[in-house]
Simulated scan of single mutants.
Amino acid sequence: MAHEFAGARPAAQHCRELTQRGPRPEERAVLVAAWRRDLARMLADDLSGLLSGDRLQVGVSEPEALSGHAALERIGPVAANSLLRVGAGGETVLASFDVATAIALTDRSFGGDGRIDPAVPDRLPRSAALLVEEIAATIAAAITRAGLGDHAARPGAAPAGEVILRSESAARLKPFDPDAAVSLFTLSIANEHGCAWQAVLAIAQERMERLLPVPGRAPLPSGDRQHRAPADPLASPFAEVPMPLHVVLAEIDLSLVRLQNLAPGDMLPLAMGRQVPLMLGEKPVAHGSIGTLEDRMAIRLARFPAEGLAR
Rank of each mutant, 00 (worst) to 15 (best):
L301Y: 03
L148N: 12
A286F: 00
G59T: 06
A40L: 06
E206S: 14
L293F: 12
A250D: 13
S188T: 13
E282P: 14
I103H: 08
V276P: 10
R85I: 04
A199E: 03
I252Y: 02
V93N: 03
E206A: 15
G281W: 07
L187P: 04
H246A: 15
S127A: 13
L270M: 12
E240Y: 05
H193W: 03
I189C: 11
A286S: 00
Q198T: 13
A29E: 07
V248S: 11
G291A: 11
S222R: 10
S167W: 02
S67R: 11
E240D: 15
M243P: 01
S82G: 04
L309G: 04
P25T: 05
V182T: 08
P233I: 02
R123L: 15
A128M: 00
D46L: 12
V132W: 01
V163Q: 09
I116W: 09
P77E: 13
A146M: 08
G53F: 04
H246G: 08
S255L: 06
E27A: 09
A104K: 06
M243S: 12
A235R: 15
N191W: 04
G288I: 07
A298P: 12
A6K: 12
R300E: 11
A141Q: 12
A119Q: 09
A157V: 15
I164K: 09
G76Y: 01
D232N: 10
E240W: 08
C15Y: 08
I135V: 13
T101K: 02
F304A: 14
H287Y: 13
L270V: 11
I203C: 06
F238N: 03
L211H: 02
A286I: 01
D45A: 14
S67A: 05
F185I: 04
Q260F: 01
H287M: 11
R217K: 06
A306R: 14
G308N: 10
N261W: 12
L234H: 11
L211Q: 05
P213D: 06
M272D: 01
G194S: 05
E162F: 01
G281R: 10
Q260D: 10
E91T: 08
A298Y: 08
R303D: 13
P121F: 06
A158R: 03
F185G: 02
R166Y: 01
G273L: 10
R258A: 15
R303M: 10
A137N: 10
N81M: 02
T138G: 06
R228G: 07
